[in-house]
Deep mutational scan, measured.
Amino acid sequence: MSIQHFRVALIPFFAAFCLPVFAHPETLVKVKDAEDQLGARVGYIELDLNSGKILESFRPEERFPMMSTFKVLLCGAVLSRVDAGQEQLGRRIHYSQNDLVEYSPVTEKHLTDGMTVRELCSAAITMSDNTAANLLLTTIGGPKELTAFLHNMGDHVTRLDRWEPELNEAIPNDERDTTMPAAMATTLRKLLTGELLTLASRQQLIDWMEADKVAGPLLRSALPAGWFIADKSGAGERGSRGIIAALGPDGKPSRIVVIYTTGSQATMDERNRQIAEIGASLIKHW
């Protein structure tokens, strides 16, 4: 067993022997301040990774656009098919120029040779490549099948209805392509620590998230040296922004954090800054 596999296998073990965790309302004060600064709703939840206990939450059962955070769930569904012998990570998928959609920095470079399922998941999570996500959605049967996968996990809230990039439209009061912070946090925890996926697939999923290259201005910008984070960000229309993450000190994750916002007129930089400040408060009061 590799060191990384050992780390993920012992996530519940280490967490069980940690000192009790206590909620700190100071972080919620910052979440509410972010709402004021952005002029928009902000949803927040913080779960203990081992027990699933909610440590703090704000608007945990209000719907927010998922945006690209759905790509972690998508690759979880792909990995479940791999575990069941219905898919192979090494299978190569070929596609054409007509398949390319807006923001496809990886797939646009491989029109000639195609990409493997493993490479597509890596591109979808680490670079948020939209064509990679659409190609992977095709392998599982489309958005409705991802929703069905989530329902089978016990998540009857999260739903995907459309493809990239239309799913980022974020129309107010439109339930399409949305989740709730509580539902997303619980589902992410199941994917990373539950028995739904094999140990190898859980490790692969967290490795992809740990290698995320496009979430630097968010929670990662607030992390002290030595902290662990595996995350996936999302951005959408109407001032929408979000991030889902597993993080913790001492090089291992111990909490799940989900943050979503929508309806702001603020710039992307300002949305990023507010999420980073929430992260800084979380870490300060850990």
Rank of each mutant, 00 (worst) to 15 (best):
W286S: 09
W163F: 03
A132V: 11
L188H: 14
L89G: 02
S51K: 13
E61S: 12
K144I: 10
E46W: 09
E195V: 03
E210S: 14
I206C: 13
I259D: 13
E210C: 15
E46V: 06
R202S: 06
V157A: 06
S233E: 13
E175K: 02
I93E: 15
L218H: 09
G263Q: 06
I93H: 15
K232W: 11
A133C: 08
C121N: 11
S96K: 11
L49W: 15
K109M: 13
I275C: 09
K53V: 01
S68M: 00
I45W: 01
V214L: 01
S264D: 07
L136H: 00
E210L: 07
Y103W: 09
G85A: 02
P217N: 06
D161Q: 05
T126C: 07
L191S: 08
K53Q: 01
S281H: 15
R41D: 12
D33M: 08
M127C: 02
H94N: 14
P253N: 15
V258D: 04
T187S: 02
E210Y: 15
G141D: 02
G239Q: 03
T186Q: 00
D83M: 08
R189M: 09
T139N: 05
V214M: 01
E210Q: 12
G251C: 11
E56K: 11
L282M: 07
A211L: 02
Q97A: 11
E108V: 11
R41L: 13
A225I: 00
D250G: 04
A148T: 12
G234Y: 04
T158R: 09
Q274H: 03
I229S: 02
D161G: 03
I140S: 11
R59A: 07
H24D: 12
V82I: 09
V258C: 04
D269S: 05
I244R: 08
A133L: 04
T69W: 01
A123R: 00
E46D: 08
R159F: 15
N173L: 08
R92V: 09
V101W: 00
R255F: 08
G242K: 08
I54G: 05
I278E: 15
D212R: 14
E62H: 13
E195M: 08
G43A: 08
K32R: 03
R238E: 07
N50S: 09
A84D: 13
E35K: 04
G234V: 06
R202E: 11
P165G: 07
D33L: 05
S68K: 13
R176G: 01
G234A: 07
T116F: 06
H156V: 00
A230D: 02
M115N: 02
I275M: 06
P172Q: 04
R271D: 14
Y103R: 01
A280W: 00
H156D: 05
I283F: 10
G251A: 04
R91C: 09
E169I: 01
E108R: 07
L79E: 06
L160T: 09
T112P: 11
N134H: 08
L223I: 12
P217Q: 05
E119N: 13
Y44H: 13
Q274M: 10
V106H: 11
Q86M: 10
T131V: 10
S254E: 12
E277N: 10
G52M: 01
E62P: 09
V106S: 01
S128V: 04
Y44A: 08
H151R: 09
V106P: 10
N168M: 06
R63F: 01
M66I: 11
A183Q: 09
N134V: 08
N168C: 10
P165E: 03
G216D: 08
N173F: 02
E108L: 04
I243D: 10
D33C: 06
P181M: 14
E26Y: 02
D155N: 03
V117P: 02
Q203R: 13
H151Q: 11
Y260D: 00
A200T: 08
A40L: 04
L89D: 12
Q204W: 11
I283H: 07
D36R: 04
S122W: 15
L167A: 10
H151M: 09
E26D: 00
S254P: 02
S233C: 01
A133F: 05
P60K: 08
S221E: 01
F64K: 14
V257P: 02
L55S: 03
R41G: 07
H24L: 07
H110W: 15
E237S: 12
A200H: 07
I229H: 03
T131Q: 15
P60L: 02
L120P: 01
R91F: 03
M66S: 09
K232C: 15
L167H: 04
E62W: 15
V117D: 05
L120K: 04
D48I: 00
E237T: 11
P105R: 14
V257D: 00
A280V: 02
L38H: 12
H110L: 14
I259R: 06
R220S: 04
L79V: 04
C121E: 00
R220L: 08
D83K: 02
A183W: 09
D48F: 00
D113P: 08
S57Q: 13
A40Y: 13
D113H: 10
A245K: 12
L160P: 12
K53F: 13
L49F: 15
G85I: 11
N98E: 00
I229K: 06
I125S: 15
V101H: 02
N168D: 04
L199Y: 05
Y260N: 02
A235D: 08
N168K: 09
L28P: 09
R41T: 11
S51Q: 09
T126K: 11
K252F: 00
H156T: 03
T193R: 04
K190Y: 13
R176E: 00
A182D: 06
P60E: 07
S240R: 06
V29A: 11
A133I: 00
D155E: 15
I278A: 14
S281D: 00
M115K: 01
I275A: 09
L135M: 05
L192V: 07
V42R: 00
D33Q: 05
E35N: 12
G154S: 08
E210P: 03
T262V: 08
P224W: 15
A230R: 03
V78W: 08
P25T: 05
H94M: 15
E35F: 00
I256N: 11
V42K: 00
G76K: 10
Q204F: 09
V82F: 09
S264V: 03
E46T: 05
N152M: 13
T267N: 04
S122A: 01
D129L: 11
V82T: 06
T138P: 05
G239W: 06
T267S: 10
M115C: 01
R241I: 08
D36K: 06
D174A: 11
S233D: 06
R238M: 12
G248S: 04
G52F: 01
W208H: 10
I206F: 15
G226I: 01
V31S: 03
Y95V: 00
G114P: 03
D129T: 09
V106L: 11
E26L: 09
N173Y: 06
E46L: 08
G141P: 07
Y95Q: 15
D36A: 03
R118Q: 14
E237V: 11
A170I: 01
R162W: 12
A183M: 09
L146D: 12
M153N: 05
S201Y: 11
K252T: 02
E119W: 15
V42M: 00
L111K: 08
R241N: 08
K252G: 00
R81I: 05
G90S: 07
P217K: 15
D250K: 00
G194L: 10
S233V: 08
A40S: 02
N50D: 05
D48W: 00
E102M: 11
F70C: 04
T139F: 01
A84W: 10
D99K: 08
F64M: 09
G263A: 03
